[in-house]
Design a protein around this nucleic acid. Structure first.
Lengths: 233, 233
DNA sequence: AGGACTATTATGTACGCACATAAAAACATT
DNA sequence: AATGTTTTTATGTGCGTACATAATAGTCCT
């Protein structure tokens, strides 16, 4: 048997992938250990490790110390979604980006907002509503609350030219965030802003970002009908 | 200056993250090269490499050979979404999973379907519609087309007890897939099946999986109102 | 000044070794 | 048989070296 040698981790990965797809290593099955594969592939164990670790990261393999490596029984598809700044998203579609501030105020938020942002019920926050346009047609409405205790500089920002979306990206660091995607019916207000019939189905992205344990901002983006979030797996 | 030594790649990563968040290394700025960081952190260059590579994978750093490593100006948030088998998703919420086959037939698909699946216009495909339940209430409708030329064994499957969702996971390998999320209005048929008012906003997942260059299956999942797809970033 | 070639440099990765760590398996003890 | 302890083993990671590769910076020639 003339085994070709696999000199780099990508080719090892490709070969492992081939065996998984070809069902040579069926789902749930234990595969040979790193040391043996290294001998078979004619490379160092660390190279095999790199390849297998990468596949484990993408969910195709389950690895446990001592127990060994097995092909994931249910390859939970891990779709990675890039959430870009809206301007970039629009411009990547070849359209001209536009922005309109709808309202800007400092107010006590409704209870659900202060609840998810973990601010005190009577704390005032900065509330910004704005419209993002692609080629002069409505693309998405942004409804945002900003924790001015965490981002005091935001109080001085008018947000009439530069969207809060972009300003915060540059000025407000965050450590982590929660994000949720859903479908909602347009209420009268949002329908008017977007120029669509009431009760239209809108794609919603809700995001809350945190700096350590304090919320930075909470935003809901409602996209005009037809919007699709695409990715590969 | 008493520099603590960073003995493992995770602690190096944490320190780099801290500097980014603290704006010691602002967005867009070039950071010291691996060799220098290795000296500063008191570890090997490969350890620094591992830490920085991991951060680059998650989009926080931009790295280019010779040009060096810089903090991403626009930290494109990469949200990873786990797309599990529906049964698991339901059971993880602590609910009881139920399944009902609605229809199963072999038919010539409408043009958009054969178009996206790259099958010949007159090729017959297996068409399965089914309902997924959580605690006896409708959770999602599945509308699926299966390429029987690629998965001939599917023809013999009734799909009356085991959903196509699960059966395909076990029997139909795929190399890659496209996925799209959107919001759609429920038509009369889907509204009836889900037991919701017509025109309700439904969360839709459209997925096409491929084995090399042939489509395996195309599925649209419509989730009952209230469904949210959550993740972290 | 402009273009073609060369040197430099930072990241990318391979290798081999060593040791850490988690967890299963074997063994001993009650 | 049930429980606690030790051994074994596969993965996880660190280190230092070497070389590959891409892209910039510099040099030379016209």
């Amino acid at each position: 048997m003339n085994t070709p040698t696999f000199r780099n981790w990508q080719s090892v990965q490709d070969e492992v992938l081939r065996r998984i797809h070809a069902r040579e290593w069926p789902p749930g099955e234990l595969i040979p250990n790193e040391a043996d594969l290294a001998i078979e592939f004619g490379c160092a164990r660390s190279t095999v490790n790199r390849a297998l670790r990468s596949l484990a990261d993408s969910g195709l393999l389950d690895r446990r110390r001592k127990a060994g490596t097995r092909v994931a029984a249910q390859p939970i598809a891990k779709a990675t979604i890039d959430i870009a700044v809206i301007r970039n998203e629009v411009e990547e579609h070849g359209a001209t980006y536009g922005y309109q501030l709808i309202s800007r105020s400092v107010a006590i938020p409704p209870a659900p907002v202060s609840g998810t942002m973990k601010t005190k019920a009577q704390d005032k926050l900065l509330h910004v509503r704005a419209l993002h346009l692609a080629d002069d047609t409505a693309y998405a409405v942004e409804d945002r609350w900003i924790n001015t205790a965490v981002v005091p500089a935001a109080v001085a920002e008018p947000f009439d030219r530069l969207s809060a979306n972009e300003w915060l990206m540059q000025h407000a660091p965050y450590t982590h965030g929660d994000i949720a995607f859903s479908a909602v019916q347009a209420d009268q207000q949002d329908a008017d802003v977007l120029g669509v019939p009431p009760l239209s189905a809108l794609f919603a992205i809700d995001r809350v970002t945190w700096d350590t344990d304090a919320s930075v901002t909470k935003v809901r983006l409602l996209f005009a009908p037809g919007y699709k979030l695409r990715t590969q797996l």
